[in-house]
Amino acid sequence: MKVRRFKDSLATTFIRASLVFVNAIAFVIAITLFMKTRPILAKTTLSHLLSSTSWHPLRGDFGFFPFIIGTLEVTAIAMILSIPVCLLSAIYLSEYAHGRFRGFVRLVVDILAGIPSVIYGLCGVIAIVPLVRILGQALGSPTTGYSLLAGGIILAIMVSPVITSVALEVFRTIPRAARENSLALGITTWEMVKHVILRSSLHGIIAAIVLGFARAFGETMAVLMVVGNVPKVPLSLFDPAYPLPALIANNYGEMMSIPLYDSALMFAALILMVVVGGFSLGAHLILLKIERRGYV
């Protein structure tokens, strides 16, 4: 009896310690990044860093505006392209498709969500970039193809499994009775979707979109490979851009040789962490609420 009790308390202690350890990791990451950005924040102001367009690391001039804009624009294009398509797909799967077909597509989408980002990047280089080049020439704005648009398209493809599967999950949490009761009024399936499904899963749809956004915002390799990487504010869809993750990835090698460079890159990482962390926190809080109540 004593041995069993001892084992139990030993195991419990170990388990609780591991919980504390996991939380500690998160705080260590946050604090480390924050401490590392302090040198550059001591030198210039936050607003200058965020709004200046001048990027000359050798002169100690770090303006993040082009990168922030690049990230936002690439992400925005991805979201505009993917949200309608993914939501319509999820609605079809949830409300029209046969259960077995839904299961099959879910499986396929799950597998596709696991494709490594370099492979998306590679396909972007092979297929999307030439496509954008042709499109740009046709529209009268010559481009290499390595552009904002190419980055946006590749990101849209990458986030589509995420948005589709989360939205589908959310639609499926709506109880069958809600569907039965509204269809019994003699309305069409689409009207039921419009008035009942979409309305009652609004929060969940937002969560799905936010998760997709978070994924797109921090995606590095796939974007880096097709977006062109020129530190200027892009003026058209066919201009190259330079998102924050690509900035970090491309310049890590030399960061130790230039003063404040490492601090500047850490600042970029901190922005990514705060934005993405904040958004995914919000999305999960919404999903948690849906799970508790069944549906909102």
């Binding site: 998160a26 990044l33 590095t220 993750p245 990482a269 990514l272 993405v276 962390g277 995914s280 809080l285």
Partner: peptide
């Protein structure tokens, strides 16, 4: 802890690399 883990899940891998 679950929320912390969700946030950790969301953090871009480049940030883990930098850290």
């Amino acid at each position: 802890t679950k929320l912390v883990l969700d946030v950790l899940w969301g953090i871009p891998s480049i940030v883990y690399g930098a850290f």
